[in-house]
């Protein structure tokens, strides 16, 4: 946002001995940077409030995520080896809104790396316009579902259910939910949650120890787990996004502050130069008489 203005600052310095027009230009620039700072500052305040809420809600969603994925790790569910034409499903959890650092790009990059090696065996579901926008140019053919209108309000279980519902219409052997896991206000890591198909779960080596299972129970179980894990991943993503937006808006306000300082200095110098020049003109005019 500020790269353009940053380039203009030294230009103003070179012209500082010139005329009133430069002075005007600097004052306009100064005003606009001040306005931008006001915007970034208020955006920071807004995301700070949203972040507090997101963090509180994330705390409540954590046991859901842990509970939903516990079975897969404890029953040692893995992708069955040697399946004919394996289809991998990747779900990118991002949002529609930008100005929040690299949260969305890092999710998209994760998927891009995966797609570079695995090619068209991978199906991609994008949640949020940002990941879709990044992936559609090169890997548009891999996208099977795109969800948007995400990020304005905190994600609800119903949102996650809808995505899980649509996902259940596609066949896949294994998959991953890629999301940003919130660590602290200043850091997050891009992580993945494994998801499995009915076939891989029934093939799990330790499934035998589980009592009274029939296909109907496992299917319902998987359907609900999918929604629960997506819900958890969306909450993690939302919290990382808000915290990241908060820090990047804070940085933007700081940068704008620095720029305002520099511009004020240039402005004052230019104004002084203009005054001096006018004085010289008057004095030399008077002495010529």
């Amino acid at each position: 946002m500020f790269s353009k203005t940053a380039l203009l600052v030294p230009q103003c310095m070179q012209q500082q001995t010139r005329n009133m027009a430069t002075l005007k230009a600097i004052s306009i620039r100064l005003k606009s940077v001040k306005n931008i700072q006001k915007i970034t500052q208020s955006m920071k305040m807004v995301s700070a409030a949203k972040y507090t809420r997101a963090e509180r809600e994330l705390k409540a969603a954590k046991p859901i995520g842990a509970g939903a994925s516990a079975f897969y790790s404890k029953a040692e569910v893995t992708t069955p080896e040697g399946t004919e034409s394996p289809k991998e499903l990747l779900i990118a959890v991002t949002s529609d809104r930008g100005l929040c650092g690299a949260v969305h790009t890092s999710v998209a990059r994760w998927i891009r790396n995966e797609l570079q090696t695995k090619g068209d065996k991978v199906l991609v579901i994008t949640i949020g316009d940002k990941s879709r926008a990044i992936l559609q140019r090169l890997y548009g053919n891999n996208i099977i579902l795109a969800a948007n209108e995400v990020g304005r309000r905190p994600p609800t279980f119903l949102d996650a259910s809808k995505v899980a519902q649509e996902t259940s219409k596609y066949n896949f052997t294994s998959g991953k939910i890629i999301y940003n896991k919130f660590k602290s206000v200043v850091s997050y890591t891009t992580s993945d949650l494994p998801i499995f198909s009915l076939a891989s779960v029934t093939a799990a080596p330790k499934l035998g120890v589980y009592d009274s299972l029939d296909a109907d129970v496992i299917q319902s179980y998987l359907e609900f787990s999918m929604a629960a894990m997506l819900y958890y991943a969306m909450k993690e993503g939302a919290c990382s996004e808000q915290s990241s937006r908060m820090t990047s808006m804070d940085n933007a306000s700081k940068n704008a502050g620095e720029m305002i300082e520099k511009l004020t200095l240039t402005f004052n110098r230019t104004r002084q130069a203009v005054i001096t020049r006018e004085l010289i003109e008057i004095i030399s005019g008077a002495s010529a008489l």
Partner: peptide, 18 residues
């Protein structure tokens, strides 16, 4: 009732187009 809010819109894609 706040939890009944859901604005998400899902569009199926094929061959790089919705």
């Amino acid at each position: 009732e706040k939890r009944e809010e859901s604005f998400i819109r899902i569009t199926p894609w094929k061959d790089g187009k919705p």
